[in-house]
Design a protein around this nucleic acid. Structure first.
Lengths: 342, 342
DNA sequence: GCATGCTGCGTAAGCGCTTTCATAAAGGTA
DNA sequence: TACCTTTATGAAAGCGCTTACGCAGCATGC
């Protein structure tokens, strides 16, 4: 039987005038389940050497107490001496919603196991301005100088975005393009626009390819690709507006990004087009709050972060290089409709 | 003399085949300075009871070893049982660069002392959907329902943004508007536009008021206020473009936000206007990467976060309510020039 | 029958830090 | 000189967690 130990917070006679909730700790769970904290930890972390019955009991106690392991303690305890850097390419727009979300999820996932990311920018030579034990490379293109540099340095790294012969993880951008195309084809669209930005970025190139080739394969209609200056709402607006002002009247547009899609929506509205009756639009990413009413290709950012962490471990362990592609799904909301046969 | 203790990482005979740097800990600093870890901690945290000479020595050692206190350890050790929530108003654009930056700084400052923020949204009734011990209210307007609600609940809260009779902290928005005006007046401008969004938001109202009243006071020229749908680059673009297309040719514009300013810049460029020779523009915020080349009114986001933390402590301690206004400065870059007298 | 291995679990050390407590030295007063 | 403060410092406990270690208890082997 474990000995209940006296600890700092155990002050039964404390006045407790305030309405202050105290979070349950591992000790509370241990007491509740009648085991030691070691066993609780093992049970919760799926370590071997715990009797199935005990494990069940612990999990029940944890649930009953709404136990939520303390991040800082776990991090401190788990600490591996690994310095992880998130490297962004020179000139990359760090303040992008996608970037913020990804960084948030990545940091959270890593914190769980005692790891920590720091952001590091790239210098004018394209190389990270600071060294680290492992790198997460964002927004890389196939001939990114960072890849060779880190390889030569013998640093572990994983690339977020699709690439060849490199450890990388990305949403299945090509499939995303394809399912967007299929959705639009199913609605009978034949005259479509692909609104994108910087086809030099692998993700955008893949989306474009997936979309165009699905249309080609169907042998139905044409797709015009228009390239915005910038993958922002403003970039999408200007590109789309210019296109529409040139007299083009596509039935649907597939935007490479939710932000581009929003720009497109706004341009359409400004020019008196109704969405979705005059124009269908589908985005990509499914960013919360940005694309709330948008039909879009959803990618799971948290899954992306989780897979990044897995690959990071493999890299650190010296495992074989592999590329992982994450599934995407189409979420159909209010901005697409059947082609209007006028 | 402190006894050098044997610790987990002390393995002098470890092969160290990898090029792995280990971060300096408080023990390293203590050894280097020839004192105990307690003294190091006291010296570094400005606690009393440390001899000035000792303090100097410790600081020197810390600097020499590039000591960077571990977040998790500090958080774990400092832990106060306070649950802090960052509340955003319903419908607020959370993914805004300013929001991201503020949250980042706030979290960092709080982590330093073992506190943690969690974000909480507001429901359709405008009230936070989750309770907490203390709240940071973002984007509040004077008659925000959250204020009364939290007061009634007896919760500590601080409002980020100017308000009356409430504990709040904000940049000196009115002064910001004024110095923007003074800058433009100094350059001889008389026909100006104030590009803003949602004057219901106190910050925007104050900036507008500061700007307009400085112009009035100088008795020079006129200011036309135009309100964008949205404080985004796209919002700024559309509002400005519409204004220019109506034939207006102001000499200068003061945008309530860097993002609005960027939109304004783009609109000007699209309509063939040169900045700054045809049009001067000054922004507000000085967001990194967004406003790199922009003449703008700079507010110190980290200071804002620090003051928020101070007020949070005051609120928790039940101190008297006070409002703090933070100074802003004009940083002059390439988007403003003397009025062209054609 | 006893050495051997396995399994399940409690114990305790340790992650890097802050802070309380004890102690020693220095200063003040009578 | 004896006594009380005050100040500077080291020792150690504790934050919540993971995990190495060791000890039972039980099954297996010959």
């Amino acid at each position: 039987m474990p000995t209940p130990s006296r600890r700092r917070h155990d002050r039964p006679d404390e006045p407790d005038t305030t309405t202050q909730r105290r979070r349950a700790t591992i000790h509370d769970v241990a007491d509740h389940a009648g085991v030691s904290i070691g066993t609780v930890s093992r049970a919760l972390n799926d370590r071997r050497g715990v009797h199935p019955d005990t494990r069940r009991r612990v999990l029940a106690s944890a649930a009953a107490l709404a136990y939520d392991p303390d991040k800082a303690a776990r991090e401190l305890s788990n600490r591996r001496a690994v310095d992880i850097a998130l490297s962004v390419a020179h000139g990359y727009r760090r303040l992008t919603p996608f970037f913020g979300l990804f960084l948030q999820h990545l940091a959270e996932r890593l914190a769980t196991e005692g790891l920590q990311v720091r952001e590091v920018a790239s210098g004018s030579d394209g190389l990270p301005v600071r060294d680290a034990d492992a790198f997460v490379l964002l927004d890389a293109h196939p001939d990114d100088p960072r890849i060779e540099h880190l390889t030569r340095l013998g640093r572990a790294f994983v690339l977020v975005g699709h690439a060849q012969d490199v450890r990388c993880v990305a949403a299945d951008d090509e499939a995303g393009g394809r399912i967007a195309a299929e959705h639009l084809l199913r609605l009978g669209h034949v005259d479509t626009v692909h609104l994108t930005a910087d086809l030099h970025a692998q993700a955008f190139a893949d989306r474009a390819h997936g979309f165009a080739s699905a249309f080609d394969a169907a042998g139905a209609g044409q797709v015009t690709t228009i390239v915005a200056d910038d993958a922002s709402t403003l970039g999408g607006y200007r590109a789309m507006r210019a296109h529409l002002e040139r007299g083009a009247r596509p039935g649907a547009v597939f935007a490479a990004t939710d932000e581009l899609a929003i720009g497109c929506l706004t341009a359409a509205a400004d020019l008196g087009l109704r969405v979705p009756s005059d124009l269908s639009v589908v985005g990509f990413d499914d960013l919360p709050e940005i694309g709330a009413r948008l039909t879009t290709v959803r990618q799971d950012i948290d899954l992306l972060a989780r897979e990044t962490v897995t690959l990071l471990h493999e890299a650190l362990a010296g495992a074989a290089v592999r590329a992982v592609r994450l599934p995407v799904t189409l979420v159909s909301r209010g901005t697409t409709a059947e082609r209007r046969t006028r």
